[in-house]
């Protein structure tokens, strides 16, 4: 029983990374109506930048806010310079751009830092804590807290600030929002910026556990896509809950389902995506889309 509990809790801590990435994907989808396939690569780039800043001697207390600001500016800049020019050319053009961003960002990271897997020290140390029958690494606790804080802050901005109300208005009905005087272009850039910042925190937290390489977030992106499908693309809360559920499901399946193990863990997200699309396409928390005939 205690092992099951341990596996569940471990799944939740890894699930937080998927949740943050899923949240970032959902934010972009709600604003732009497209999947940003490069969201994982943005997070990988952020992890490498934090590694570079750490190597340069910057304290972790400074790295986190600097990284968040840099990621925000990067995300907003990508929207403004690369996404917006093709926005009017339909969803396929947008998907192509995000796929190109995935490949391009991956190539740039590999070009600058190489393709070898590097070890990245945990900002939270190597200590191990015991709480009753459960064991936590400092990285899991600190990283989990950091990701959770980023998601709560993001949620608070959306829920409780005038900026959030404008972002929600643009996500819900861009035309109506424009006519209210909201600059949808600015709001989309801000949305991409916030998404990149949340993803950056996910990359920063994932790197010490998974090892720093250009492929850092490749699997995490697939799991995040499953999470956002499960939770619902139209729901930020759904994306987070989906991420946590996917983390737990993957962990439990690799431990208890014969034949899956660590190598076949990615079967779980694919199975989840397939089942959700079959049974409840809008996801657990999503709203079914209605198209006026």
């Amino acid at each position: 029983m205690s092992e099951l509990l341990q596996q569940t809790v471990s799944g939740l801590t890894t699930g937080l990374v998927y949740a943050a990435l899923a949240l970032a994907i959902a934010l972009v989808f709600q604003g732009t109506g497209t999947l940003n396939f490069a969201q994982g690569e943005f997070a990988t780039l952020a992890a490498f930048v934090s590694f570079a800043l750490s190597t340069a001697g910057l304290s972790w207390w400074l790295i986190v806010p600097v990284l968040v600001v840099l990621a925000f500016v990067f995300g907003a800049g990508v929207e403004r310079l690369l996404v917006r020019p093709v926005e009017g050319n339909g969803p396929l053009a947008l998907l192509t751009v995000t796929a190109a961003l995935l490949l391009g960002t991956n190539a740039v990271v590999a070009l600058i830092w190489g393709t070898d897997v590097r070890s990245m020290p945990s900002p939270f140390g190597d200590a191990v804590h015991h709480v009753g029958p459960l064991t936590f690494t400092a990285q899991a606790l600190g990283g989990g807290a950091l990701v959770l804080t980023a998601m709560v802050l993001c949620g608070a901005i959306f829920r409780f600030t005038p900026l959030g109300l404008r972002l929600r208005a643009v996500a819900d009905n861009p035309d109506s929002a424009r006519l209210l005087g909201i600059s949808t272009g600015l709001m989309l850039a801000v949305g991409w910026g916030i998404a990149a910042a949340v993803g950056a925190v996910a990359g920063l937290v994932a790197a010490p556990t998974l090892g720093l390489s250009p492929e850092l977030m490749t699997n995490a992106l697939l799991l995040a896509l499953a999470a956002v499908t499960l939770g619902g693309f139209s729901s930020r809360l759904g994306a987070v809950v989906g991420g946590l559920l996917i983390g737990v499901l993957s962990n439990l399946a690799s431990r208890y389902v014969p034949g899956i193990g660590g190598d076949l863990q990615l079967v779980v997200p694919f199975a989840v995506i397939f089942l959700v699309l079959l049974v409840r396409p809008q996801g657990l928390f999503g709203r079914p889309s209605a198209v006026r005939a």
Partner: peptide
């Protein structure tokens, strides 16, 4: 559109477009 809204143009839709 948002600049026109700031100029003082406001409108409603055939089907109310609300959040």
């Amino acid at each position: 559109p948002h600049q026109r809204a700031r100029r003082g143009i406001s409108r409603t839709f055939q089907t109310p477009a609300l959040l």
